[in-house]
Amino acid sequence: MSESKGLLKSHIVKKYWMAATGLFLCLFLVGHLAGNLQLFMTSYEGQLQFNEYAVFMTTNPAVKILSYLTYFSILFHAVDGVVITLNNRKARPEQYAYSKPGKNSMWSSRNMGILGTIIFVYIVVHMQNFWYEYKFGETPYMLSDNGAPLLMDGSEVKGGEIQNGAVYLNGDQVGDAMRDLYTVVQSSFQEPLLVAFYVLGMIAIAFHLVHGFQSGFQSLGLRNPKYSPLIMKAGYAFAIIVPLLFAIIPIYMLIVA
């Protein structure tokens, strides 16, 4: 135990990492939501804009760095969370026969591990549904309003043909075809069970954020009587508004389309 002063073994340092990655993931949620809100535009132009956005998000080098930072944060947050949860349990080997934890704390604060596990399962399914499909699946391709293939940069190839994801004109390959992620999303959300799964995922994220947002600031020591009430309120607002807007999208897709 003499090494527990070592930074990686300290309970508090583990919480710093939890807070830093968690708060970074809150920023990621805002960015992800901004992109998703484009799905509300059901016109051809909206569909085109979303698919061009998908190309940007998968090819831009700055976005690439941010995406690796996000993957790292999710994995680190999850692993650190498991380690912390195990340490939490070690500290009380014998439980109370009769306990009323609801008298002094919120359910979400006491069950971040369970909520985190649900969210992790959600992320894996979500990545399979769209990220994997977009990268490796057999997606439909985005065509121009004349029915001609589109390249990744959005330019139209009149008289072109799509084969194995590439656009050919008179037998010559001219570039990669733009994939139609919009249609992948729209057709996926025709399945009510998947919509329900996504809504449940968002409910779990909402409860996770109710505790996590303000807890992140507390762990980093960012608290004082002047701005802490503001952090609490901002945390509640964030926890309700962000997952709600995310959850409306699949419901909208199910009902409108």
Binding site: N88, K90, R92, P101, N104
Partner: peptide, 21 residues
Amino acid sequence: VKQAQEEGFGPCSNTGACEIE
């Protein structure tokens, strides 16, 4: 902080139960 951890007290989950009780 080191001593508290070595004694076997757990990490803080910021639930706020302590402050209330």
